[in-house]
């Protein structure tokens, strides 16, 4: 990273005041240290839940701006909890950014969490730098939100390579930001399930 860019990054301000986080982690120390970091970033003291069921009960009646879940909850996998959130019809809860904290960064575990609809996975232990940069990235990066029968969550594609045959077939290639579009309504396009799976593959 260039010296000028690094200086600009240090000078740039981010206002996280008033941001409420829901923190779900069974480890008391990790919970304490993350809560400490969030407060020092200027965010509200996070709401703490210790299980998936308690989290669901809380979210039925409260809104939060950011969710941070441990990958392994005492009563369920966090993937189940994420899928529940993503399928809530109550907007904007279903669009809430979700960060998962895990020590087990094996590829299959990460894929399960990603495919449940998490925005970001962070390897524990979490440093202040990593946490702040992750939150900043979530706040500053606009990602489309995909809703299909099998997947509801942020667009999992990060690469923006040209298609091999040069033909743009992805739906987002022709959609302007700011719209909510039903593809079936828009151009009566029909997707078979296999082609849809290919389109969503990372």
């Amino acid at each position: 990273m260039g010296e000028r860019r690094r200086r600009n990054m240090s000078r740039a301000k981010i206002n996280l005041g008033g941001v409420t986080t829901l923190l779900v982690d069974g480890d008391t120390f990790m919970r304490g240290s993350i809560a400490q970091m969030l407060r020092r970033f200027g965010m509200n003291t996070p709401t703490i839940c210790e299980s998936g069921a308690a989290t669901m009960a809380h979210l039925e009646h409260h809104y939060v701006e950011l969710c941070m879940f441990e990958a392994i909850l005492p009563d369920m996998g966090c993937a189940e909890l994420i899928r529940w959130i993503r399928r809530q019809t109550k907007s904007p809860l279903r669009f809430v950014p979700i960060v998962v904290l895990t020590s087990y960064t094996l590829h299959r575990n990460l894929a399960i969490i990603r495919d449940a609809g998490a925005n970001l996975i962070i390897k524990r232990p979490v440093s202040p730098q990593l946490l702040l940069d992750s939150i900043t990235w979530l706040a500053k990066t606009s990602r489309s939100f995909i809703e299909t029968a099998k997947y509801v969550g942020p667009d999992r594609r990060f690469r923006t390579l040209e298609p091999l045959d040069g033909k743009h077939k992805r739906e987002t290639d022709v959609t302007k930001i700011g719209d909510t579009v039903s593809l079936d309504d828009r151009n009566e396009q029909t997707f078979s399930e296999p082609s849809l799976n290919r389109a969503l593959a990372v």
């Binding site: 301000k13 981010i14 206002n15 996280l16 005041g17 008033g18 941001v19 970033f41 200027g42 809104y63 701006e65 950011l66 907007s91 904007p92 669009f95 809430v96 950014p97 939150i135 900043t136 979530l138 706040a139 500053k140 606009s142 489309s144 939100f145 995909i146 809703e147 299909t148 029968a149 739906e171 987002t172 959609t175 930001i177 700011g178 719209d179 909510t180 579009v181 039903s182 593809l183 079936d184 997707f191 078979s192 399930e193 849809l196």
Partner: peptide, 22 residues
């Protein structure tokens, strides 16, 4: 298969855009 694409602006993004902060 019915498929929807949304472009939501999250509350986190809205709050982070305000002036001030650190």
């Amino acid at each position: 298969v019915s498929k929807m694409i949304h472009f939501p602006k999250t509350r986190l993004a809205e709050l982070a855009e305000r002036h001030g902060g650190m």
